[in-house]
Design a protein around this nucleic acid. Structure first.
Lengths: 193, 193
DNA sequence: GTCTATAAGCGGATAGAC
DNA sequence: GTCTATCCGCTTATAGAC
């Protein structure tokens, strides 16, 4: 009917999911709402994905790929070791500023919190996000902290997670700025060792 | 019937709620499970509390009071300004080690994440937890950071929230230790100002 | 008056029939 | 793509026991 119908139903479903699930809440979003927004019937959703959980998992996988790409850009753009380590906060500010991917705090942590018994498929994506963070931060910490790279990476990961939780809490006011400051202090502390 | 029946139904419900809701997940715990564990009928729950949400809210209020008391003890036991500020991490380790209050990560943040549209009653408790943290950390930061007390308090709150999120993520391994280190580095950075 | 037991209404997730 | 049926979770109503 409408022009939008030219876009495949699967794509429309994923876009609706990304737009609504993590802003309104995964469990608070009825399947019917996704169907309405994607202008798709229930049968189509269950043909393409099999379940609401599987659609959530696929939407999360898309987010993870997008987030990885944004972070990449900010690492490449940084021109010294410290800025490359702290780029994760600039990338986060950029990703959250993009209205195409709204989120109350963090899609991956929210999924883990909202769906504790969820399909392995879903917890795998949070594990993937955590592995990406731990791995990259560990490598980026090496030139700054040498033998203490693992400690610094742990600290930056925790500051990053704290910034995300800050959005859920509504405090502090500018969680990303505070997280960046914390990570900076940690980096300075280790470079003095 | 059994001896346990001597304890009022309302108390048994609150104890069952505290035991199960935040470990299994608030939305993943059916009312029936709470009724079974408390050996109480549905009518009793709805007479005493009015709704599942209201029971959740009351269980959260009890948690907040308990947490405040534990934190109090650790602040009083500390014998210098730095340890008083970092006592929040020792209190967290102690509270989490108490098997009477199991929790996957944080009851308040989990409630906010799982129940985004929840009754004001529930979001009020997270706001109360956040206000308690912000207020106390701000006062405890004063002797260490003077005019920058607010910045230090923001940083410690973020490190604290990050430690909690670390449990949800399963990384870093010992989130409380890492959070404490991060807060310590922040305190040192401000005391050099 | 407090509590139990049972049933039933309602809405969302899912699946299959057409 | 629509419609219908099933299952499950929250809630309320009813009737009765201590």
């Amino acid at each position: 009917m409408t022009t939008a119908q030219r876009i495949p139903a699967r794509t429309r479903l994923l876009e609706a999911a990304d737009r609504v699930l993590f802003e309104r809440g995964i469990r608070d979003t009825p399947v019917d709402e996704l169907l309405r927004q994607a202008e798709v019937s229930a049968a189509t959703l269950y043909t393409h994905f099999g379940s609401k959980d599987a659609l959530v998992a696929e939407a999360l996988r898309v987010r993870l790929a997008d987030w990885r790409a944004v972070w990449d850009q900010y690492i490449v753009a940084a021109d010294n070791d410290l800025d490359r380590l702290l780029a994760v906060f600039d990338a986060l500010a950029s990703y959250r500023g993009d209205r195409r991917h709204p989120s109350r705090w963090c899609a991956f942590l929210a999924a883990a919190s909202e769906l504790p018994e969820a399909a392995e498929e879903i917890s795998d994506v949070l594990a993937g996000d955590t592995a990406l963070l731990a791995d990259r931060l560990s490598h980026l910490s090496r030139p700054l902290a040498g033998g203490h790279a693992q400690d610094l990476a742990d600290e930056v990961l925790l500051a990053y997670s704290g910034a995300l939780a800050g959005f859920l809490r509504g405090s502090p006011r500018s969680p990303i700025d505070v997280g960046r400051r914390l990570a900076h202090a940690a980096a300075r502390a280790h470079s003095r060792d």
